[in-house]
Design a protein around this nucleic acid. Structure first.
Length: 467
RNA sequence: GGGGCCGUCGUUCAGCUGGUUAGGACGCCAGAUUGUCAAUCUGGAGGUCGCGGGUUCAAAUCCCGUCGGCCCCGCCA
């Protein structure tokens, strides 16, 4: 095999005239008879290579055996493309390589899907052929971003004199929290290690040991059911520092995040970050991790509710609960069916219901509960609600109101496209090279799997799988 | 543990009020083709309709079960 002299995405006009060697995958073949165009791809991008019968009949003939995704090494001369056939959509579009020698390093079966970003493939197929899926430029980009983030974190914390220390993966089961993954010990029959849910224990010991500043990009394990954004094993940036006050900790983490976004994302975040207390967050947004990409706060209307004639409001407000409101700007046109659907979801989240009212363009209240409410008192209590708006109410115990309205707020944010999700991925599985399925199985290895009777015997484990 | 959506050529979808030679697009194969880059033109192959059972003269289509994927609730710092 000839070793590459350049990457496929990095050849420019500067290389015109040079003889180069490219190694890569065949992205696409365009056969024009005596001329064959092939897009050669590697991690860095694509270069068009040309097999021309006039230039080299033998090599041109060989080009007919090249198929999608076969791995080749080509040797050829970089030529400037004629003006009319330059490709402005390609970073390497001003040049092409005329091939003088080709070697097929590995043949390929026809792949089950094309290796392109906009290829429409279901996720199970992508996971089954993960080695192909990962070839897609988008996936390579995501892997690269993860890499860049980790390097940025390390670079920043190293500069801040943190020490990266590894902590054990075989550790001890703790009674609290999530369920542990257990690992049997052969040396200690009947006893088990637990995989760490987080390095918590050890980082505190490191502080006691005088390490002073510790960090780790740590793998954590929790044997709980999966979600779209939750895998049984995940990575967390774990840090601990001694001799610091709260302000130092917060500002250090702020700088770290600014550095990560700058170095890995090319984004300059404005500082200082807004700060709020737990009580403010929960009170205003119904969550301790509020999504601040859109506003839509929760308004306290408990006093108004206590003075109203609506029994649900009055009871919640006078018996130790609260009544809060969400304003959907311009939402008065929302059809009843949609509002009812939101009410059903609120019930699903633990509420008894979701009271609502519309404010007509004339400033009147329109709702099944309108007859219990005084317009003037309402306007005074919630001046932010304007004609044309829809107002949703939660009336219950404090924690329930916050939780339910917080979730409804998020639903509305997505539904009304108040959140810019450009560039987001569908699932956390897209940013993990080898994710697990919802049943916590590894599609590549089929783990978890049964083990041999000998292994079990050695571990002194007997199975009891009867229902 | 519970609820929901989905499973049809390699891929992505249509067909699902039971009766069709199960269809389109992309991909694939063959031929043509000197400038394409979503190449084009002509022709062709390709499906046990996830699996098992049932209803029926007849099932991709209806019913039951099962397996798999995803989403959500519970759970989870």
């Amino acid at each position: 095999m000839k070793v590459r002299t350049h990457r496929c995405g990095e050849l420019t006009k500067a290389a015109v005239g040079q003889t180069v060697v490219l190694n890569g995958w065949v992205q696409k073949r365009r056969d024009h008879g005596t001329v064959m165009f092939i897009d050669l791809r590697d991690r860095t991008g694509i270069t068009q290579v040309v097999f021309n019968a006039e230039r080299n009949a033998v090599v041109h003939q060989a080009s007919h055996s090249l198929r999608s995704e076969c791995v080749v090494s080509v040797t050829g001369q970089v030529m400037a493309r004629p003006d009319e056939s330059k490709n402005p959509n390609l970073p390497t579009g001003e040049i092409e390589v005329f091939v003088d020698a080709v070697e097929i390093l590995n043949e390929s079966k026809t792949p089950p899907f094309v290796i392109e970003d906009d290829a429409e493939v279901t996720e199970s197929v992508r996971l089954k052929y993960r080695y192909l899926d990962l070839r897609r430029p988008k996936m390579q980009r995501l892997l690269t971003i993860r890499h860049d983030i980790m390097q940025a974190v390390r670079g920043f914390l190293n500069a801040e004199r943190f020490l990266e220390v590894e902590t054990p993966i075989l550790t001890k089961s703790t009674p609290e929290g999530a369920r542990d993954y257990l690992v049997p010990s052969r040396v200690n029959p009947g006893q088990f290690y637990a995989l760490p849910q987080s390095p918590q224990l050890f980082k505190q010991v490191l502080m006691v040991s005088g390490v002073d500043r510790y960090y780790q990009i740590a793998r954590c394990f929790r044997d709980e059911d999966l979600r779209n954004d939750r895998q049984p094993e995940f990575t967390q940036i774990d840090a601990e520092l001694s001799f610091a006050d709260r302000e130092q900790v917060m500002s250090l983490m702020e700088q770290m995040i600014v550095t990560v976004f700058r170095d890995a994302g090319g984004v300059q975040l404005p500082t200082p970050f807004p700060r709020m207390t737990y009580a403010e967050a929960v009170g205003r947004y119904g969550s301790d991790k509020p999504d601040l990409r859109f506003d839509m706060p929760l308004y306290d209307v408990t006093a108004f509710a206590a003075a109203s004639e609506f029994k649900v409001f009055k009871e919640a407000a006078t018996k130790g609960g609260i009544v809060k409101a969400l304003i959907v700007k311009g939402g008065a046109a929302t059809p009843r069916s949609r509002i009812d659907a939101l009410g059903e979801m609120a019930k699903g989240f633990g509420a008894k219901g979701l009271a609502w009212l519309k404010i007509t363009p004339e400033g009147q209240l329109e709702s099944v509960i309108a007859k219990f409410l005084d317009v003037k008192a309402f306007t005074a209590a919630l001046p932010e609600a304007k004609p044309g708006d829809l107002v949703l109410f939660g009336a219950d115990k404090t924690a329930i109101v916050h939780d339910v309205l917080g979730r409804i707020r998020l639903l509305l944010g997505e539904e009304l496209k108040l959140i810019d999700t450009t560039g987001n991925t569908e699932s956390i599985r897209d940013v993990i090279a080898f994710p697990k399925t919802q049943r916590a199985q590894c599609p590549l290895t089929d783990a978890p799997s049964t083990v041999s009777a000998e292994q079990l015997k050695e571990l002194r484990i007997k199975l009891d799988l009867v229902e």
